[in-house]
């Protein structure tokens, strides 16, 4: 049984960063054409940083991503000063690791998200084991197809649009998962929803993202 959006609202006040309502002055509006341009542009900026250590390109990336990373870290509970510091560290890591950015595997915002996420984990003194890319036992990926390569830069835009189309209660759970550093069990406690409901709702949200025609084309 699913609780209606109205009931959820009474149980769990909407997060201030709900997708369906622009809550913050700097929040990007859904302009697909512009964000498409952004995705390709950020990729080219990162590649310029990687190949030429281009400071202008880096400054542009900083201007775009650092405030978003700071917001991300503050939503995870970091104080503003700390979030600022960690956002700076994230951007230093972007500079230093730019050569390892592979546009065939991830788009710029996803790659930067993973760096910011790992900074947050490091700061919390948690450990997140990762696969060793040089592991001889690693089972190889299938070759990335040309359409898949082409799709990477469009992925963020299609995904963002699909997330905006989710019902508020599902989108909020995605936000809590990614930006408030909460396990599903923590979310269940906070929202007073049964854990199974939280997991189901997130699963349904992910299924809807998968079912979105644009995302589907990129994910399959």
């Amino acid at each position: 049984m699913y609780i209606t959006a109205t009931a959820v609202k009474s149980l769990a006040p909407r997060a201030p960063h709900s997708v369906n309502k622009p809550m913050e002055s700097g929040r990007a509006q859904p302009k697909t054409a512009n964000t498409n341009v952004n995705g390709a542009h950020h990729k080219s900026l990162l590649l310029r940083v990687a190949s030429k250590k281009d400071r202008e390109a880096f400054a542009e990336l900083f201007e775009y991503f650092a405030p978003r990373i700071k917001s991300f870290l503050m939503k995870g509970g970091s104080a503003p000063d700390l979030a600022d510091e960690l956002a700076q560290e994230t951007m230093i890591a972007v500079w230093q690791k730019a050569e390892s950015f592979n546009p065939a595997k991830a788009n710029a915002s996803t790659w930067i998200f993973t760096i910011a996420r790992n900074k947050r984990i490091d700061h919390l003194r948690r450990v997140r084991p990762e696969i060793d890319p040089a592991d001889p036992l690693l089972v190889e990926d299938d070759a990335i197809s040309a359409p898949e390569r082409m799709g990477q830069q469009q992925e963020t835009e299609a995904m963002a649009e699909a997330i905006k189309g989710l019902p508020a209660e599902q989108a909020d759970l995605l936000y809590k998962s990614f930006f408030e550093d909460k396990t599903h069990a923590d979310i269940a406690k906070e929202t007073k929803l049964p854990l199974g409901t939280v997991k189901s709702r997130i699963r349904i949200a992910l299924e809807k993202l998968r079912a979105d025609q644009k995302v589907k084309e990129l994910w399959t």
């Binding site: 960063h17 978003r68 998200f113 905006k164």
Partner: peptide
């Protein structure tokens, strides 16, 4: 990445 880029403010 999508939320960071486009939705989180």
């Amino acid at each position: 990445g999508a939320i960071l880029d486009d939705c989180c403010g």
